[in-house]
Structure formats: C-alpha cells, structure tokens
C-alpha cells in the first residue's frame, strides 16, 4: 500500500526539480539495463533491415514503444503504404491506452490540480519498462513528487537509450557476423518473453500463440497486409475462444 497517498503539507514539500532528478537517478536499474540491451538489438535489426541512422533514431525518439518501432521498421522496409502502416502501428500500440488509463490516477494530484498538458507530456513516456517501474514505485512517493519523478525517469531513460541506439547502429557494421545476427535475434526473443510475462489473462496468452502461428502464414499468403490480418483474426479468435471456454467451464 501507499505510504504517502496524499500530498505533503506545503511547508514540507520538496521542489519539483528535486523529484525530477530523483527520477533521473532511478534509471540505474535492471529493467533499464534490459531495455537498453533490447534497443542495442533493435539498432542491429534496423541496420540489417536497411534503415538509415536518421530513420532509426527518429523512430526511437518519437515512437518510444519497441513493438510499434519494430512494426514500423517492417512497414518501411516492405514498402507498405502509409495508411496500412498507420493501422498496423495503431493496432500494435493500442495497449498503451489502458496502460495510461491505469497510471493516471496514481500519477496526478488529487482534485484535478495537475495541468492536463503536463499529463499529455508525461504520457509520451508510457511504455512497458517505465510503466511497470512507475506502477511499483510511484505509490511510495508523495503525490506532488510523482509527476516530476516520472517525467525525470522517462526523459532520462529515453535520452540515454536514444544515444546508445545511435552508437550501437554505428558499431554494428564493424562487429563479427555472429554478433550482428545475435543482436537481430535479441528483439524477437525479448518480445517473446516480455509479452508472455505481461499477459495476465488467458485470452492474451492465446492471442500470442495465435499470432505466432498465423503471422508466418499470412506473411507468405497475404504479404503487405499480413500484420493487420494476424492481429485482427488471431486476436478475435483468441478472445472468442477464451470467452467460450470461460462460458462452458466457469
């Protein structure tokens, strides 16, 4: 439970920048190390897929959610149109919406005191790593410190990862081939494990298996729109299937 579920009295409050720097310092953590490794892997994937350094860095900084970044990379390299690409990315990143919904009551001050533009700004840093960290640690911080802490954490980790991705992109060309191949493999394995770990209910696990099976089939038989079909058909089948199972065996 929360130690400080209310704001501190005004005379005991620390200034916002103190919380910002505490958030920045908090990125020294194991999840941040794994995320950095995942982006080093992505730098390898992007370079091997033929993306330029500028494209790779722009995707990293602007999108800031690795699944969406990888979907977008595939869309660029396969010459997908802008509309199907936007739909595929939107479907891949839709999970950010319920994550933001769950985070907001923890993040903002009571009585709607937090200006909405600050919340829009902070929401850009909602991605699995920062979100999990925030959901665990923010409740132990006084209300008035949570938003600057989260923005400090999010801004610092994304700036750090941005630089590492750029450096890794440059170094990939000089690495031995098996290391480059291993960097490419890092992204799918990281997703495989983190997606399974993040899915709490059976319909998401079923959707993951359906996507793994349908993805390659649609890739071969419906190239271009394969991701959309994999998501819509696999997700709907998994959702309906688990609902039926739930109804039969309550």
């Amino acid at each position: 439970m929360s130690d400080f579920d209310v704001s501190s009295p005004p005379d005991q409050r620390l200034p916002s920048h103190v919380w910002f720097f505490r958030g920045a310092r908090a990125i020294v953590s194991l999840p941040a190390v794994i995320l950095t490794a995942a982006f080093i892997g992505y730098a390898g994937l992007a370079r091997e897929s033929g993306l330029t350094l500028g494209e790779t860095l722009m995707l990293t900084g602007l999108v800031w959610a690795l699944p969406s970044i990888v979907v977008m990379t595939g869309a660029i390299t396969s010459g997908m149109g802008i509309v199907p690409a936007a739909i595929a990315v939107a479907l891949a990143s839709v999970r950010l919406m319920p994550m933001t919904v769950a985070l907001l009551p923890i993040l903002r001050e009571e009585n709607g005191l937090t200006p909405r533009w600050k919340l829009f700004l902070a929401s850009h840093f909602v991605a699995v790593t920062a979100w999990v960290y925030a959901m665990i640690h923010l409740p132990h911080i006084p209300r008035e410190g949570r938003l600057p802490f989260f923005i400090g954490f999010g801004a610092t980790i994304s700036a750090f990862v941005f630089c590492v991705t750029g450096i890794a992109y440059q170094l990939v060309g000089e690495m031995p081939t098996p290391v480059t191949a291993a960097l490419f493999l890092l992204t799918p394995v990281y997703f495989l494990c983190s997606l399974w770990g993040a899915s709490k209910i059976s319909s998401e696990k079923a959707a993951m298996i359906a996507g793994l099976v349908l993805g390659p089939i649609f890739y071969v038989y419906l190239p271009g729109l394969d991701l959309l079909w994999t998501g819509l058909l696999g997700g709907t089948l998994a959702y309906l299937g688990t609902r039926i199972v739930r109804a039969v065996r309550p």
């Binding site: 891949a92 839709v94 959309l228 696999g234």
Partner: peptide
C-alpha cells in the same frame, strides 16, 4: 488487447 498481442506475436514469428 488480444488483437494487439496477436499482432506483435506475428512480428516475433
């Protein structure tokens, strides 16, 4: 969430 998960799983495969 099921649709999003299946789509990302498709990317993995």
């Amino acid at each position: 969430k099921a649709v999003a998960t299946a789509l990302v799983a498709g990317v993995i495969a």
